[in-house]
Every structure is written in C-alpha cells, then in structure tokens.
Amino acid sequence: MPLQQLLGIWIAAGLTLAIYSFLYKDNPAYKFAEHIYVGITAGYALCTAWYNVIEPNLISELLKANWHNPFTALIMTWTVIAPALLGILMFSRFFSKASWVSRIPIAFVIGAGAGISVPNTVQAYLIKHTSATFAPLIPKEAIAWSNIMDFINPLIVVLGVISVLIYFFFSIEQKNGLKTVSWIGIIFLMIFFGASFGYTVMGRVSLVIGRVRFLITDWFPLITNLLGLGS
C-alpha cells in the first residue's frame, strides 16, 4: 500500500474515533478533532471558491485577453469585469460609512434572482403541484374493492392539502369549524414528520455504517497486519 494511502487511513481512523469519543463524554481528543475540522472546512471552502469560481471564471478569463490593446481587451472582458466589480462592492460592508454601497450588488442579485425564479417556481411548484392535487370526489363507475385505494388516496391528498393550508392561516382566530379542520391539518403534519423522521433515521444510520465499515474493512486489517495477525 502506498505511504500516502496508509497515512490517510490512519489519520481518517484517528479522527473518526476522536469525534465518536464525544458519545462517551467531551474530551481533549474530541476538541482536537473539532478544531481541526473547523479549520479545515474554512480552508476547504476558500479553496473550492478559488479553484471552482474565482480562478476559472475571473482570473483565467482576464489572462486570456490581449492586454497589449487595453481598449479591445476591456470590451472583450467586460462581462467578467462588471460582475467582479459588483462582487468587490460587497466588501464595503466592512466599512460602516460605505456599507450602503453593498446594496447595489445585493439588489442586482435579488432582482435578477427573483425575476428568474418567481415565474418558474410558480409554474413548477404552485401550479403543477396544485393541479396534481385535483381528484374527482365521486367515481365515474363502480370500483372493485381491490382498487378502492386508487380512488381514496387522491381524496386523502385533497383533504391533507386543504387542512394544512388552513392550519397555516393566521388572519383570523381559529375557533369552531376552523379549529377542527386545523386539527386535522396537524394530524397530517405529524404523519409527515413521522415518515420524514423514519427516513432520516435510515439516513443517519447509513452514515454510521459508512464509518464503521471504513474502520472494519480499511483500518482494522492494518492493525492486524501490524500485530502480525493478518493472513
């Protein structure tokens, strides 16, 4: 096994155990791993931003232009320079007197973002999802008992959507009939939360499985080999 891979496995195993040691109680090993993690993630975010955003989209584009002829170069790269300038304006937030300048790029981002996303989101979620809710309240013809759920399921969806919408109605006090519908809404919400929670337990356990498998299949053989127990 190459040295770098060997070293990688030992470091990964050590940090995994250090982080899991928190389950027993807070200790210096956990603190050490925690601080390393915080530092590395900050550095990682910076590297990702540099190599995936700033370097390919700004620096390399600027270097590509022929700056011996500055006028032509400016015309060729204005689509890069203008957003870069807007980005630089964001740093004005660090100076309290000039912090208002940062509103210009924010306005640009929010304006363009809302302009693009509002119609698309209305189409993709409001219209499509609402229309997917519609269902006939009485079947056209007699349904076999085996297919009864095909008719009932859409009605449950209709009831769920309406009752949850009413639960989130804040303009009037929820009393009498409204309270009952809103109570049905809570039941639907809780069922969703339960299902979601079940799914998430599965997700979190998957992460533990990933780590434990790493320890057992990658790291443990190294120890057995070290102790001369390996085959």
């Binding site: 993690y37 993630t41 900050a42 975010a45």
Partner: peptide
C-alpha cells in the same frame, strides 16, 4: 465560527 455546516 465558520461557514461550514458541520464545522459550525
């Protein structure tokens, strides 16, 4: 602290 999810 840090902007990273799990670091934070």
């Amino acid at each position: 602290v840090t902007s990273d999810q799990f670091g934070y």
